[in-house]
Write a protein that binds this DNA or RNA. Sequence first.
DNA 1: CGAGCCCCCTGGGTGC
DNA 2: TGCACCCAGGGGGCTC
Length: 277
Amino acid sequence: MPELPEVETVRVGLEKLVKGHTIISVEVRWEAIVGMSSAEFDHELAGRTIEKIERRGKYLLFRLSGGMTMISHLRMEGAYYTVPTGTAPAKHDEVTFHLDDRDLFYRDTRKFGRMVLVPDEKTMTIAGLAKIGPEPTDDTLTLEYMVAEFAKTKTYIKPFLLDQSHIAGLGNIYVDETLWQTKIHPLQPANSISKRKLGELRRNIIDELARATKHHGTTVHSFTNAFGQAGQFQNELQVYGRVNQPCERCGTPLVKIKVAQRGTTYCPKCQVLKPVK
DNA sequence: CGAGCCCCCTGGGTGC
DNA sequence: TGCACCCAGGGGGCTC
């Protein structure tokens, strides 16, 4: 599932392949993805040039000529890839962007992904982006912010970190990984974590996402970046997908539970629930 | 207003 | 072999 490192990998690939190219026409075969008819979507986009592709959290921002932005969220399995002009779409290729020199396909097996068109200046007003938290980098995610933000609620740390309004870009995989690294139990209330521990968590989140991005992200299930460059970070994961396997720190078999409807893998010995004062 | 739950989807895996 | 069922899960939107 694309989280920040995977989306960034897609962004870099798109910049190489479609930046500077013009959209001739568009066909949509599953209209819920774009929220309008195929004809309307085509009408809005035909003739515009893709000036650059930016990213905020897990959102891709296609900056188009004429002051329009196409916001694209891949959700679970969305993927972009380019093919020679006129290539027939396969079963789950739901959107075709006919560009001036090739076609850009959007594939989405489970049809969860969404594309939204807005004037550039309205980009940060759409649901999801309006309340998005800081990017997990040294400059943008400060310890002072984390201390204040985490103190606001006793929500379990796991769903707290999955909520993009607190910190942008984390998903199920990297939350499990960074909680394991920091030795925090997934059910620990956010406001019960010490400043020292938050400092460690911050360091691990920033470093883990940077490291995963460097490896072109994690390839699980059907996700690939579709640019002939599958991510390699799945080989680096220490808890996700490793239920019943020994903890790499202490050897205890990893346990899997449900937290807020999400599969959650952790080490019952390293990640102990601390009493709340 | 925050927390919890449902829903959107399909393919892969499992049990009978 | 086939069928019914469950699970994977980001995030919008709903209810309480």
